[in-house]
Nucleic acid binder design. Structure first.
Length: 605
DNA sequence: TCGGTCACGTA
DNA sequence: CGTACGTGACCGAG
């Protein structure tokens, strides 16, 4: 056994049921790969061909290992833990999902799709799109459905077509036909990785920061974090958010009534709820779900509103029982339609709420989640209950967007304000206004508001924080001109190519802040994940049991054994310090996290 | 069956 | 007329 194997033995990634040292076809594999020029800690291309095995690729070699079942695959990968590879896959969604399902928690990865999104501002992360963008070819068509003759034009059985694009045949599954093809596919992923790595390495750091780990530049570290977030998205989808079905059902009974037994019963209950509102109005036959009809009905009662949004009706609620009834109906209707019994049946199984996660959606690259994970009403959060013997540890980044603005713009004045726990207090002092006004002015600056009560304070912002305001103005100008823009971490915000609307200007102005905040958040989440699940902290005792169960833009929710609550809380703080040490190095900006522990999500505040 | 609009939940 | 997202009901065009 080589020296590298001894020092590097890290079997903690493995499921307890898989012994990486067990004798078997994969025993000694790590040694063999090292002998064939595979370097410890480096990118290692990985493709899993279902039912066949594992394909590996490194710059000077490749290898296929037969593995029929997911457990076999897990055993092979566990045996490679001594190599401490940065697993390089086309996407975590495509490759890591089965690994996670088999109990693996890979430590480090490179997600070619996630990095493609970052570098090229792609809305897609499939191999065809990333390959084309990296080769600077025209956008590739989406592969779906059956191949037709047109698809095969220019194809000769090779993975790369004569026009330079990836083969549609290979994209449709040819890569998984045999282990030899899977190795080729893994080598192609590694080829893209190397090209991406070169682009990232060449990217100048936005500011002359020092102290980044291993001398790695910000863009590359951001690529690591985006990759980790893509893997985390797969894990979140697999693990789910603990939710007590009984508690939620009790809340639903309280809010919207009993569970309907059949469609007719449901219609009857619906009519009963509607009647509680309609009885306040003289006319009949009004559909409460049709805003136009509701507006007309209100108008006949002497309430004229341009639309029927709740904030517009709110002022009338005190004097009009009818409006109050309508607003109460709306609230119940929202819960009933979106977070009611149907949602419960669809999205909660085995005490966990599960939905699809995306690690970088939308223009700014925030994480998004489906199945209501990101917009569950606050009033339902008491149903998010920790399991027996477990607690939630919740960490919330305080005032993250203005702090991010201070860091990315290099504005010394704003950075000075960001040394305090509440940065709006010093801003108010400098602007000569009260705290609420200062807060509105800062938010208005980041969102691109141009009018309103913050007007005077905004003028003061220009004088007091010129670099921050110039940073925002430059972003807006780029958006208006149709030019490309990059976030601090290097995410491309593609320009429209031609002068755009004010709306797009405002969008880019906000996206450079929101996007950078998302990058910082993901880097923090990745660091927390390492402290929880990965095997890179020695000795073993320093690792904290538990898992991340929710990411919510500036908030992380951990589900941990009660005995580990303090350690998890400390991890949230230390991980933030470790992350901002390189992310905001030299800026003087302080980031803060508020941590709370509780038996439910609602209680952890 | 589709996209657009309204409405509303979260950050 | 401050940003982003996901979801559902309804409408009208296809």
């Amino acid at each position: 056994m080589g020296a590298g194997l001894k020092e590097g033995r890290r079997d903690n990634d493995a499921v307890p049921t898989v012994d990486p040292l067990a004798a078997g076809p994969a025993a000694g594999l790590a040694d063999e790969l090292v002998a064939e020029g595979c370097i410890r800690g480096a990118a290692l291309g990985l493709v899993v061909a279902p039912g066949l095995g594992v394909a590996l690729a490194w710059p000077v070699g490749r290898r296929g290992v037969a593995a029929k079942s997911p457990a076999d695959v897990a055993a092979v990968l566990s045996s490679l833990a001594p190599l401490d590879p940065r697993w390089t896959w086309w996407t975590a969604q495509g490759t890591a999902a089965s690994l996670v399902a088999a109990g693996l928690r890979p430590r480090a990865c490179w997600d070619v799709g996630a990095v493609g999104r970052l570098l090229h501002g792609l809305r897609r992360d499939d191999p065809a799109a990333v390959w084309a963008a990296e080769r600077e070819l025209p956008e590739a068509p989406v592969t779906r459905g059956q191949l037709d003759l047109l698809d095969l034009e220019g194809e000769d059985g090779e993975p790369v077509r004569s026009d330079g694009q990836l083969s549609r045949d290979w994209l449709r599954g040819r890569w998984a036909q045999d282990l030899e093809s899977a190795q080729t596919w893994a080598a192609l992923a590694l080829e893209v990785q190397a090209s991406q790595q070169a682009r990232l390495t060449a990217a100048a750091d936005p500011r002359a920061h020092t102290g980044r780990p291993g001398g790695t530049n910000l863009a590359t570290l951001t690529a690591y974090a985006e990759s980790a977030a893509a893997l985390l998205a797969v894990e979140l989808e697999h693990d789910g958010l603990p939710l007590d079905r009984g508690v939620l059902e009790a809340m639903l009974r309280e809010l919207v009534g009993e569970r309907p037994s059949d469609p007719a019963h449901e219609a009857r209950l619906r009519a009963q709820r509607d009647e509680l509102v309609l009885r306040h109005f003289p006319e009949s036959g009004v559909d409460l779900r049709n805003p136009l009809q509701v507006r007309a009905m209100l108008s006949r009662s002497g309430i004229d509103v341009p639309d029927t949004r709740s904030w517009r009706l709110e002022p009338y609620a005190a004097s009009s029982p009818a409006v109050a009834a309508l607003l109460a109906w709306r609230k119940a209707e929202r819960v009933s339609t979106t977070y009611g019994y149907a949602w419960l049946e669809r999205s909660v199984q085995g005490g966990r709420l599960r939905g699809a996660w995306s690690a970088a959606d939308g223009g700014a690259g925030r994480m998004t989640a489906q199945a209501g994970l990101h917009n569950m009403p606050t009033e339902l959060r008491p149903a998010v209950c920790a399991e027996d013997g477990m607690v939630f540890v919740r960490g919330d980044l305080g005032q993250v967007e203005p702090r991010v603005l201070a860091a990315v713009s290099g504005d010394e004045g704003l950075a000075g304000a960001a040394t305090e726990d509440d940065m709006y207090a010093p801003v108010a002092r400098r602007l000569g206004c009260d705290r609420p006004t200062a807060k509105v002015a800062v938010l208005a600056a980041m969102y691109g508001q141009t009018s309103g009560p913050a007007g005077e304070a905004l003028k003061q912002m220009d004088l007091t924080y010129p670099k921050a305001m110039a940073y925002l103005r430059d972003a807006e100008a780029a958006g208006l001109a149709g030019a490309d823009k990059r976030t601090y971490g290097g995410r491309l915000l593609p320009g429209l190519g031609e002068p755009g609307s004010g709306g797009h200007g405002r969008y880019v102005r906000n996206a450079v802040v929101q996007g950078a905040a998302a990058e910082l958040f993901k880097a923090w989440a990745a660091t927390v994940r390492s402290g929880l699940a990965a095997a890179d902290v020695e000795p073993e005792a320093e690792r904290v049991a538990g898992q991340i169960v929710l990411c919510l833009h500036d908030e992380l929710l951990l589900h941990v054994p009660a005995a580990s609550a303090d350690a998890a809380a400390a991890l949230l703080a230390s991980a933030l310090d470790a992350t901002t040490a390189w992310w905001a190095a030299g800026s003087g900006v302080r980031f803060v996290v508020q941590v709370a522990v509780g038996p439910t999500w609602a209680a952890a505040h």
